[in-house]
């Protein structure tokens, strides 16, 4: 069993502008009104990078910053978090633009498009924005990406405490996990990858101080049903994007309720026992 602590959440989705919005919807204070995510998303990037950042980077960075802003713990520094970026599909829109350029005479690929095409582009932009020189990984496990991302965060945080990584100069207690998939361009729609934009970010820690929730995570060999949200308004959203598998966790935190959530992880299930700390 891997025990970690949650310090904050950031989220953006159709009809959900941010964490406060989500809490109000979860608690029934306001309804979920479908509205596509705004075309213009403000990020903390320096001007040079902001001009070049693609949609998936904007979504990822918006939630990353939100999660960091929502941390109440004193002395928290976004630049000192371990960085885990998780995208099921990567930037298919940039791939599409490059492929369109590759059919033109002379195959004129723009250098900016090319550096944006790497799976770790959002992570690279974030490290610049947050001045974070810590370890940064960018992963995918296709439809199991959210579960794989959460497990990776727990594994990295707990490894910080073992003998081997204790010597690490950048030994860290907090980890920023960012999960994001944007909508692919039209030719890919038939592949049924993602029907809505969704991004969420979590500041996780191996330190209980000023944490909101305790997460006890383990793999179970039994095949479980995917946990669904309590609020039926979230269920369509939950099925619209691989990263929205996070919603039952986010909902429990918003309601400050303990819950056992199961998220499919390959042939196994990722069991997460959520316990509020106040």
């Amino acid at each position: 069993m891997l025990r970690i602590y949650l310090k904050s959440i950031g989220i953006i989705a159709p009809g959900v502008a941010g964490w406060n919005d989500f809490c109000n919807i979860a608690k029934g204070v306001q309804p979920l009104v479908y509205e596509p995510v705004a075309k213009k998303i403000e990020t903390v990037l320096p001007a040079n990078e902001r001009r070049r950042a693609t949609r998936v980077t904007q979504l990822a960075l918006y939630t990353a910053q939100q999660a960091c802003d929502n941390v109440v713990a004193e002395g928290f520094s976004a630049g000192e978090c371990l960085q885990i970026f998780n995208s099921s599909n990567g930037d298919v829109n940039t791939f599409h633009k490059i492929s369109m350029a590759l059919v033109m005479p002379g195959r004129p690929v723009s250098p900016t498009l090319f550096h944006n095409s790497v799976h770790n582009a959002p992570a690279g932009y974030w490290s610049i924005a947050a001045k974070a020189q810590t370890a940064s990984t960018s992963i995918t496990a296709h439809e199991y990406s959210f579960a794989a991302g959460l497990l990776e965060a727990a594994v990295q945080l707990i490894s910080q405490e073992n003998n081997y990584e204790q010597s690490n100069e950048l030994n860290k207690r907090d980890c920023l996990l960012v999960c994001c998939d944007d909508k692919p361009p039209e030719p890919f729609h038939a592949q049924g990858l993602v029907s809505e934009e969704f991004a969420c970010a979590f500041v996780l820690s191996n330190n209980i101080e000023q944490a909101l929730f305790q997460l006890d995570i383990q793999l179970s060999e039994q095949i479980h049903e995917d946990s669904i949200c309590k609020n039926p308004e979230f269920i369509n959203l939950q099925n619209s994007n691989p990263q929205a598998k996070a919603l039952p966790i986010i909902e429990s935190v918003a309601l400050n309720e303990s819950r056992q959530v199961v998220i499919p992880y390959f042939e196994q299930g990722l069991n997460i026992l959520l316990t509020p700390l106040n």
Binding site: N120, A123, A148, F266
Partner: peptide
């Protein structure tokens, strides 16, 4: 096409069912 394809392929080919991911940091 998906970046996870390579781990997916190896798991399927070798019939493995353990933890998996693809790291794609260029």
């Amino acid at each position: 096409h998906n970046s996870f394809s390579i781990s997916d392929f190896v798991r399927t080919y070798m019939q493995l069912e353990g933890p998996a991911l693809v790291v794609s940091t260029a």
